[in-house]
Amino acid sequence: MELLVASAIGVMTAGGVYLVLRLRTFPVILGISLLTYAVNVFLFASGRLTVGAPPILRDDITAYADPLPQALVLTAIVISFGMTAVVVMIGLGAFLGSDDDHVDEQPEPETTEGET
């Protein structure tokens, strides 16, 4: 189980990093979202993995999953929505304003090769 979660975090991070390094806004936004998942799961996993013991207090149960990382990640998820929305808006505004969705500053208009 630990291996599965850890490798999922690794795969999502790798995918996120790769997409963030792309040249157009949309894949970069997708990359940021993917990184967000990875980070949230990573933070969540800092409470270690517990199956079948949600932190809802019951009279006859004493073992629970760690509630604190869950609370922190919950707000992180909501905030990351806000952040994604702002980034999308900025990317969209830039595209509508210049008809260009490159992430990098384009030195000359005719340059299509993104190497800088």
């Binding site: 850890a6 690794g10 790769y18």
Partner: peptide
């Protein structure tokens, strides 16, 4: 460039994997 980015991405992925796996245990 894509190979270079993939290299960085895989390094990052391996790093988070290793870190997560170690502390989960």
């Amino acid at each position: 460039r894509r190979i270079r980015d993939a290299g960085v991405a895989i390094a990052g992925g391996l790093a988070t994997f290793a870190l997560a796996y170690h502390y989960l245990l």
